[in-house]
Every structure is written in C-alpha cells, then in structure tokens.
Design a protein around this nucleic acid. Sequence first.
RNA 1: UGUCCCGUAGUGUAACUGGCAACACGUCUGAUUUUGGUUCAGAAGAGUCCAGGUUCGAGCCCUGGCGGGACAACCA
Length: 561
Amino acid sequence: MESESVKNKEILNFIEQIIGEDIRNHKNEGRVQTRFPPEPNGYLHIGHAKSMCLNFGVAEKFGGTCNLRFDDTNPEKEDVEYVDSIKEDIRWLGFDWGDREFYASDYFDRLYEFAVKLIQKGKAYVDDLSSDEIAATKGTPTEPGKESPYRNRPVEENLQLFELMKEGKFEEGDKALRAKIDMASPNMHMRDPVIYRIKKVPHHRTGNKWNIYPMYDFAHGQSDAIEQVTYSLCTLEFESHRPLYDWLIENLEIFPSRQIEFARLNITNTVLSKRKLLELVNGGYVNGWDDPRMPTISGLRRRGYTPASIRNFADRIGVAKRDGMIDVALLEFSVREDLNKTANRIMGILDPVKVVITNYPEEGEEWLDAINNPENAAAGSRKISFSREIFIERSDFMVDPPRKFFRLGPGREVRLKHAYIIACEDYKKDPATGEVTEIYCKYDPDTRSGADKTGKKVKGTLSWVSVKHALPVEVRLYDRLFSRMDPLALQEGDDFKNYINPDSLKTIQSVVEPSVQGAKPGDRFQFLRQGYFCIDPDSSGGNLIFNRTATLRDTWAKKHG
RNA sequence: UGUCCCGUAGUGUAACUGGCAACACGUCUGAUUUUGGUUCAGAAGAGUCCAGGUUCGAGCCCUGGCGGGACAACCA
C-alpha cells in the first residue's frame, strides 16, 4: 500500500503544480478551465499536439474542461477550410471538446463593447498615424517611444471616430485604436499597442459585418474572460504580452484568467514553424502539408504514426520554460513502442533477389502457419504460401560474408521464417554488372517450423516471399526531412532548405506476401525485420503503396554501417 | 548595450515546505529469441553555468557575474 502510493505519485509539471496550489487555495472555487486556441490559417503540427495534450490533459487531470476556440481575428489569412482540417486533427488525436466549440469572431460585438469601455475610461484613443509612423515612433527596446499627437483626443471624439471606423467611413490604415498606456515602458507591448485596426475584408464567419477587427492582444485574453478560462496556457514568445494581458483585465474589469507560458516544442532534423512549413509546401520541397515527411499531424498520420504514439511522446517530453530541442529518436521510439504491440507482422521484401530451392518439387506448394503478432496472441495467425522459388532481401546474401554475418552466403545455413532451414550451395551473377541474380539452396524437409525434429540451430532467420504468390507493391522509404540536427542554426546568408535530406524519400518496387491484398489506406503492418509500414491513400485498387513509418531498431546495421 | 525569461548526465524532464541528484530516450554489456525486433538483467555517463553568501546542511534561498532566449507586425 505504501509502495503503491509511492508508485502512483504523480510527477507534475510546473503548470500543474501552480494549478494544484490554486485548487488548495480554492481559487476560482477550484474550477479549472483551459482552451486550445488554434488560428485557422494553416495545418496543425506536432507542436500543437504538445499544446493540446497540455490543455486537454490538465483539464482532465483536475476535473475541468478544455474549450476549442478558433482565434480567427485576421480574416485576411484565415479560412473555414482550415477549421475543418484542424477539427479533424484534434479528433484524430483523441481529444473531445464536447459542445464547447468557440470562435473569437463570435465575440466581436462584446469585444467592440470592451473597446468602447476602454475609450470611455480614457484608456484608449483613435490614432491617425500610419502604420509606418506608429512603428517609427515606437522607439526601440532600449529607447523610449514618442507619444502620438492624437494621443490626447477627448473621449467623445474618440468614441465618434471609433464608431465611424466601425461603419467603414475610413480606409484601411487611416486610423487605428490604441490602448493608452506608456510610450516609455521598457516593454514594447505596453507602448500604446494597436488594439483595433480597419480591415475591409469579409470574414469567413461574420461576412461583411465588420470593417474593423481586434488585434490578438485585444481578443485572446478577452475571449478567455468571456469563457471564464482559468488558465490560458501559451508559448514563451507571449511572455512579454502578459503585462498587457493583465493590464486589460484590470482596466476592462473582466474575469482574471491567468496566462502561463511554456516552451514550444523543437525537434531535431525538422522544423516546426508554420512559416517554414509553408515555405516547404509552396516551394515544392515536399508534396503538400500531409507529406509523410512533414511534422504536421496530417503528415504524421499519413506516415503511419498512431494517436497514442503522439500522446505518449507528448507525455515523455514534459512541459517546462527552458527551451530546448527533443531528439527525433524519442518520437521514433514512441511509434515503435506502440506499433510493436499493435501492428500485425507480414513478410515484405524491399529489394528482392530470387532463391531457388533445388530439392523442392517443381510444382510444389504448401501453406504454412504464420503468427500475426507475437506480442498479441489475440491477433491470431494466417497461412502463407511456400514454393520452390522465393524472394529474399538482397542484403541478406553476401558472396563473401564476414564471420558474424548471420545470414546467407555460399555454404551457409539460415532459417526461413515460419518455414524451413535452407543451405546455400551456389549462386549466379550477372557477368556485366556483377550483381547476384539467383541463389541456389537446398532445404531440409524435417525442419519445418513447428514440426522440426532435427533440433538443428541456425544463427539467422530470413523473411521471404514465394515468387509465384508475391504481390508487387510500391514502397516509399521515408527518412528524416533534414540532414542537420538543427536546420535553423545557420550562418549569415545560409538557408535551412539547403539541408533537406536528399534521401528523405526513396520510392522502390517491392514484393509482399499476398495476405495484405485488400488492405485499406491507413492499415499498419510490421514488415518482419524491416520496419513499420502504413498503406498510403494514393493506393488504388490492386495497386498498394506502403509508407515506411519507421525502421526497426537495427543493432547490426548500427555497428556495421 | 533596456526589460523580461531560462541555465540539472549526450537529449528531455524530476527532485514534496533546503536533507545522499531520479526517470525516459540515446549509448554500451550480457541473457533469451524461428524478427540482429521485442523482452529481461546490468553498466557507463551530471555533483546541478561560475564566484561568493546564509545554513549543521543549498540544485532549491540571497548577491554578483557568465551564457542562452524573447521583445520594436494595423500577425497570432
């Protein structure tokens, strides 16, 4: 009992510790409300998955709920198309927002009222300065800014002008509403930030109703307040926004949500910024947002990653304020771990070479038992066909193998998985290329798997596929997108795209056992001794395409390159 | 040359109100294995950025450095 409680002692991240303490102090009556706030202007990536796991996870852990809220305050960049893909990705990851699907745009009327209130309190003014002029008078992090000549307009005039802005009487850029805070603040965000701008662009949800739209800083925290969000969790780059976030809570006299920042996710050998990912897509460096090399949720899904593997990954990486970089090997470990338990095994030969079993009957054929998943007895077994001619992996044969090569070579013996032990007697080479074209072996009929009475031991076991039953398939071998650990650690003038791994995708023609016929896009398998593969949606009819999700761990390859 | 945040094995996260620095991945051994996978057993690897201070005792507290990051979009 004692040890049980020790074992179950949960490790809380710093945010959970804060919440736990708040609950002990009965803050917010112990209520916990979070939100996941994507902007519908692009696709979700694994960094967002971290945020979801945090926001939904924390809510669940403390008996609260997490809202889905689209931060759609910039109609220029946003579109309903993204709303749908985002929802699909969240659902796929296994998170449920119930009926709490909100949009910042649903709050535009109230946000407008908030702005009016701020003006009435003399805490906001309409500025006629242009965007450039505002930037020019903003100062720098080390020098104070200059106050706008329009800063001290009377409240009534501000009210009228703001009203006219709303009615579309001014053109974009002619006027903006600014909070009146402190142009000399060491925090740039407090130097009279623009909180409303004119944008005569139809919004994907509110249509042509608005000519003005609130800025992030005047929408996010206010939406949090409207939804009574108790913890507004965001990434580190918003840290310097927090004083403004709190200033607006105080001056608007609204529900005091607490913003807490954590470090965004970085992973080696990839990039995780919407801008960079967009660059890869637009530049044709990858085949779209769901290219299996992309760290997007849709890319990972197509690659064969499971929701559980991504959630486990998020658990393992933790949450903290220090920004660092996670080794992609941890992500790969997480899929292997999950797929090892769940993916059925099949035999697939990536780079086939023919083996003729010379003492096997010419027309012979037999059906052997093959277990589907040694990690899961419930997965059952299947029959696989064996015959005189089989394919094995080209790399499983060497003309002159080193001592510790446990595979096939002249005079060597191996077991064929689920079948017989064979001994290599000869091979044929293409005189022109030197490539091995055919291998000749004898099999021992007394060594059939499950019925072996010889007690014979061999070092190696090979996967194989019967030539006449083989199913030809396309296989897309994926590898890390970037050859550099940190593709963004660049010299002046260098470009991250120069470090795209030229071998990140290799398409090959392979063969697999016929049992996979009829498999559907998204189905996942382990090719014995090779790795995990997932059927790509590009597959059509009898034409299967497999994406390699991850290789198996390979301690032999690691040592022998 | 301003303000804020951060600094614990190779990487990432822990260490309850100060009490022998732990876990995971990675690395390396060995065992088992009809997947060179899985599983199992084990090992190496940090004395917590540095220097002072408080304390019986500091990764946790204080001071000063050093290092890294963020901030000057009518983006989020």
